[in-house]
């Protein structure tokens, strides 16, 4: 039977798994020769970081990490790689060897086991896992986005507005450099 003491164990285990995953992925990201595998390793880094954010009770930042970095920015990267025709299918084989497959399978089994244990555990353990995180508890009416949104539109309003100027400059610059030569 599962008792409460497993919860901290799971937490530590998850932390080490995803911290190592983030470190390894970023190492592979900078050492791969093929741009496509490098980009995919970066996606993996972003996902591992997102998990770490969620574990720090910053769910909103975690979701943003996946949506913005792993989603939008990496898609743009891959588009550029595709349009420039840089990817070589023969180099695209980081996960097609037996070693990496074993590691991935082992990790997958461990995480599934963890999930199933929690799902079948008695009520009190599940309650512990699903306790309201401090960020939500202290956020009040704003929910988990409140602690981000509040300062952004009060204390850091100027920084927020300056960011829009920064993006405008970036757009003008990109348009000017991409225009046809006169």
């Amino acid at each position: 039977m599962i008792t409460n003491e497993f919860y901290p164990l799971f937490y530590t285990f998850n932390f080490y798994v995803f911290a190592l995953l983030a470190l390894m992925s970023s190492l592979f990201f900078v050492t791969r020769k093929s741009p496509v595998s490098a980009a995919l390793w970066l996606v993996s880094t972003m996902f591992a970081l997102a998990v770490l954010y969620v574990m720090l009770d910053a769910e909103f930042i975690g979701i943003m990490q996946i949506l913005v970095y792993a989603g939008a920015i990496m898609v743009v990267f891959l588009f550029v790689v595709m349009l420039l025709n840089l990817g070589q299918p023969s180099e695209f084989s980081d996960i097609r060897k037996n070693g990496p497959r074993l590691v991935a399978g082992f990790l997958g089994i461990l995480l599934t086991a963890e999930l199933l244990t929690l799902a079948w555990s008695p009520l009190d353990a599940r309650l512990l896992v699903t306790t309201v995180p401090p960020s939500v508890a202290t956020a009040g009416a704003g929910g988990i986005i409140g602690p981000v949104a509040g300062p952004l539109f009060t204390e850091y309003l100027l920084a927020f507005e300056l960011t829009s100027v920064l993006l405008l400059v970036a757009i003008i610059g990109a348009v000017v450099l991409a225009k046809k030569r006169s």
């Binding site: 920084a159 300056l162 960011t163 100027v165 920064l166 400059v169 970036a170 610059g173």
Partner: peptide, 9 residues
């Protein structure tokens, strides 16, 4: 932000 606005331009 000031450094970035300046540098990007």
């Amino acid at each position: 932000l000031g450094i970035e606005i300046m540098s990007l331009a």
